[in-house]
Design a protein around this nucleic acid. Structure first.
Lengths: 170, 170
DNA sequence: GCTTTCGGTTGTATAGTACAACAGTTCTTT
DNA sequence: AAAGAACTGTTGTACTATACAACCGAAAGC
């Protein structure tokens, strides 16, 4: 599907002329969204590294997830973040070596290991969270509460819609 | 430093009670934004790799930028995307080796090289753009035009606000 | 019981990135 | 004008994040 055309194809030419053209064409918006999200992605990493060189990095997200749902398994994390098991395994290895998470074997299924944050993990997480939050807060300080809420909502909605454009019939 | 608490700290407890609590507290929104943007970043890369294994890298974005402002310099790219010069240099090297961009020395300043997309570059870009747009389009197909426009707007606004929370007295 | 499936680890490879050191240019300052 | 500072870009090195494939042990199905 999608004749999304090479650059500015006439895909939008079929709009009925009686509609007020106040709103930019979907293509333009989608394009902006695509580009800006990508741009963000780059910056986010750099910023995170800057704000928090301590915790080796993106594992922060995993740690955060673990803290939220204590007792989850590695596979859950992989599924949730669309990561390979090996990636998760290594990330967890790093977190464990840092003493931020514990991997406890599950009594009823000796294959799985249940994940728990340690005290140190929670502390680190709290600090990191605070730092990042502060950075975001600073950056978003001029936004109205309403805009913030709506923006957050859009992002949630976007990310909720199945993994990365792959068909995910849920 | 920072007692932002692990999960749901009382940092928000100082809201005047006479305000209607219809709107989530700023902290919550900011937190969601932070988390979701980060989550997106992960997925985006995976998705991009999937959609477009051809152009080996994320340099697609750089190519896109070059195509848009033909004649820009490497430093511009680095500044714009908050990347190290070396990173940009290598990315450009890759793009050049693939015959997608040209690096021409600037006549008036022999230090800089002016960047231009090649024919092939434009073609590849167009294809990639179309693919990605299609993917995004598909994903966003249930969004109203209004929501799309607003989301795009928020992202633009977010990314426009100076590099990553670093003080940037421009 | 044997085979398949599941959860996780390890080997290997690649992309992307940064930092530091460097090379050639241009601008400034004396 | 010579010396030095500032700028543009490249190269050496290292590290994180990630994937894929091969594997191991445990559990489930036949």
């Amino acid at each position: 599907m999608s004749d999304a055309g090479t650059e500015a194809t006439p895909a939008t030419a079929h709009e009925p002329p009686h509609e007020p053209p106040r709103e930019p064409p979907r293509e333009a918006s989608v394009d902006v969204i695509q580009r800006e999200l990508t741009a963000f992605a780059r910056r986010a990493r750099a910023a995170a590294a800057r704000v928090h060189p301590e915790i080796p990095l993106v594992s922060y997200t995993l740690l955060s997830h673990i803290a939220e749902r204590s007792g989850c398994r590695a596979t859950d994390l992989a599924a949730h973040y669309l990561l390979d098991k090996s990636t998760v395994s290594r990330q967890l290895g790093g977190l464990e070596k840092l003493g931020l998470v514990e991997r406890r074997p599950a009594p009823e299924d000796h294959r799985v290991q249940v994940l728990h944050p340690t005290e140190a993990g929670l502390t680190v997480l709290a600090t990191a969270q605070a730092n990042r939050l502060a950075a975001y807060q600073e950056r978003l300080k001029d936004w109205s509460g309403e805009d913030l809420a709506r923006f957050a909502d859009y992002l949630l909605r976007y990310n909720a819609e199945g993994p990365a454009g792959l068909p995910d019939p849920r």
